[in-house]
Simulated scan of single mutants.
Amino acid sequence: MTIHTYTDLPLIDRAAFELACARHGFAPIHFDVRGETDPDDPEHGELLVVRRGAWAQAYRIDARGQWLRQFEVDLNGRFFRQAPYL
């Protein structure tokens, strides 16, 4: 599956992403979400790259939704709060 925006995520992942954003005072539109092939391991699927401002984080997409837990950890750690406004 090719992911161009967060709306291309599977429905369950999209809903979980929206809820995680809301819990931390964000909306999905605050983030640029794109799927990219892992340049170091192209045979094992895509990475989901989430950007906000100058900050970006890559998550490995898997069937268990591990990337969502990692995204929420980054939100809890205020990783994306530090993004400068352009």
Rank of each mutant, 00 (worst) to 15 (best):
A22M: 06
A22G: 06
A22F: 10
R23H: 12
H24K: 07
H24M: 05
G25Y: 09
G25Q: 09
G25F: 08
G25R: 09
F26G: 01
F26M: 05
A27W: 04
A27M: 12
A27G: 07
P28N: 06
P28K: 06
H30I: 00
H30V: 00
H30G: 03
F31Q: 04
D32M: 11
V33A: 10
V33Q: 02
V33K: 01
R34D: 08
G35A: 05
G35Y: 00
G35F: 00
E36Q: 14
E36L: 12
T37K: 08
T37F: 01
T37W: 00
T37G: 02
D38P: 03
D38F: 00
D38E: 02
P39S: 12
P39I: 08
P39D: 12
D40K: 14
D40V: 09
D40Y: 09
D41T: 05
D41L: 04
P42Q: 09
P42G: 09
P42Y: 03
P42A: 07
P42C: 09
E43W: 06
E43Y: 11
E43R: 14
E43P: 00
H44P: 00
G45N: 07
E46V: 01
E46T: 04
E46K: 10
L47N: 07
L47C: 03
L48M: 12
L48E: 03
V49I: 15
V49M: 09
V50F: 02
V50P: 02
R51D: 10
R51H: 13
R52L: 08
R52V: 08
R52T: 06
G53I: 08
G53S: 11
G53M: 08
A54V: 11
W55C: 10
W55A: 14
W55N: 15
A56H: 13
A56N: 10
A56L: 12
Q57L: 10
Q57S: 15
Q57N: 14
A58E: 11
A58T: 10
A58I: 03
A58R: 13
A58Q: 12
Y59E: 06
Y59D: 08
Y59R: 02
R60P: 09
R60L: 04
R60K: 14
I61F: 01
I61M: 12
D62P: 02
D62W: 00
D62Q: 02
D62G: 10
D62L: 00
D62V: 02
D62S: 12
A63P: 01
R64M: 12
G65C: 07
G65D: 06
G65R: 06
Q66V: 08
Q66M: 10
Q66E: 13
W67A: 11
W67M: 11
W67D: 00
W67Q: 11
L68E: 03
L68R: 14
L68M: 15
L68D: 01
R69N: 12
Q70D: 15
Q70V: 00
Q70W: 07
F71E: 03
E72K: 07
E72Y: 09
V73T: 14
V73M: 15
D74T: 10
D74A: 15
L75K: 05
L75P: 10
L75N: 06
L75E: 06
L75A: 05
L75F: 07
N76I: 10
N76G: 15
G77Y: 05
G77F: 05
R78Q: 15
R78Y: 09
F79I: 10
F79D: 03
F79R: 11
F80R: 02
F80N: 02
F80C: 07
F80L: 05
Q82P: 00
Q82F: 09
Q82K: 14
Q82R: 14
P84W: 04
P84H: 08
P84F: 05
